[in-house]
Design a protein around this nucleic acid. Structure first.
Lengths: 144, 144
DNA sequence: ATAATTGCAAAACGTTTGCAAAAAT
DNA sequence: ATTTTTGCAAACGTTTTGCAATTAT
């Protein structure tokens, strides 16, 4: 948290609250953070939530990914970062260690000269449960 | 295109035009499709573009991915599908064959019982050019 | 003739911005 | 005292929706 000060930013109550909320909620949209804090004694304006998340992203304290649905979700960058597995059937989000994509990273580096940032990777697909419940995986578009 | 009829949908001029536009433009936002068609003798309402893209997605004729920036982009699902490599530096989008992620798919299937749909995969990172132009890849958050 | 589809206009989102008041340095 | 940061309100861009007119079947 001294990272803020060391870069010339000010350490405010709101920034503390937003970071804590992201930590607690694991995967949270700005709206999620806003509603989570509404309950507390202190509450934080939605615009401030957006501005703070942007700042925390710049400081690389949080990362974000578009999981599904409209809004972006933010999460802490704990050093053991992860890949998101999003099931189109039930919408569940699991996390897998970055190592599952080691091969991909290697190929992209070697053959495409592309340095992948896999901490933000989102893989859509279907989990085992949904595949067994509904093997006719055809008409999924309309789940929304 | 008979796919539409065979599923009980009607084959309209607008649907033909939207599908053609997606084919021509390769990666197009709904707005892109709309503007592309504005020029033509026939034009299509933006709301219709949205509805049509949703339908074509359901029929699995097109796929979509959130590349960067605000809007979703749509592309044809030609059977030789691809992975998107989006550079955070210059915003360029390259395509790599699905095979680059074979290893990933395998691990997810074997260890996570997760059937990944990699045709929609988006990998963020930095291309070689941007890495060489600006090796200090630190303060990227604010590119927007 | 019937039911699906369109265009239009308006609403509903998620997100960003200008500015005066408040808070951190 | 100074400069950043906040809350509020209003704007913005994207997407969705209700409904009467139109079009494909």
């Amino acid at each position: 948290m001294e990272l803020l000060r060391s870069r010339g930013y000010r350490l405010t109550q709101q920034r503390r609250l937003v970071l804590d909320a992201v930590r607690e909620l694991r995967h949270a949209t700005p709206e999620d953070v806003f509603r989570h804090l509404r309950g507390e004694s202190e509450s934080v304006d939605l615009a401030t939530v957006y501005r703070t998340l942007e700042l925390l992203t710049e400081l690389e304290l949080v990362g974000h990914a578009r999981l599904e649905g409209a809004a972006e979700t933010y999460h802490l960058i704990d050093h053991a970062d992860h890949v998101h597995l999003v099931c189109r059937g039930c919408g569940s989000v699991r996390e897998a260690p970055l190592s599952v994509a080691d091969g991909l990273a290697e190929v992209l580096r070697a053959e495409y000269d592309f340095e992948a940032d896999l901490g933000h990777l989102v893989v859509f697909g279907r989990c085992g449960t949904c595949r067994r419940d509904n093997p006719a995986a055809d008409d999924l578009g309309s789940i929304t």
